[in-house]
């Protein structure tokens, strides 16, 4: 029973590691580069909550919120920067 458990755990660990390796070696062309900040804002914010109004916070506050949301929503740096720039521009 124990050996079965360790085999399952090992296979799952290998799955995680292999996936990360494959992804790390794949094309570095960022999909986010092709999308505008407005598009990323519309697509990613609504995955959890309503899209925020750009006027809800100041430009400086958006920068801090951007960092917070980069962690919470697992965004890349480029995606985050584009969304924050859009919110600051539309503010």
């Amino acid at each position: 029973m124990k050996s079965k458990k360790y085999i399952i755990n090992t296979l799952l660990g290998m799955f995680f590691a292999t996936t990360l390796f494959i992804v790390g070696c794949s094309s570095t062309q960022d999909v986010a580069l092709a999308k505008s900040g407005a598009q990323l804002w519309g697509e990613n914010c609504v995955r959890c909550h309503n899209a925020p109004s750009p006027t809800a916070f100041s430009d400086i506050q958006w920068e801090t919120i951007g960092q917070h949301m980069r962690i919470r929503a697992n965004l890349t740096a480029q995606q985050t920067d584009k969304v924050v720039e859009f919110l600051k521009m539309a503010n």
């Binding site: 996936t19 992804v23 062309q29 999909v31 986010a32």
Partner: peptide, 17 residues
Amino acid sequence: VRGALNISHHAWMNYSL
């Protein structure tokens, strides 16, 4: 450790360990 990566032109993934 966490983050996000592109896996193709249309898809991306996020991970956490």
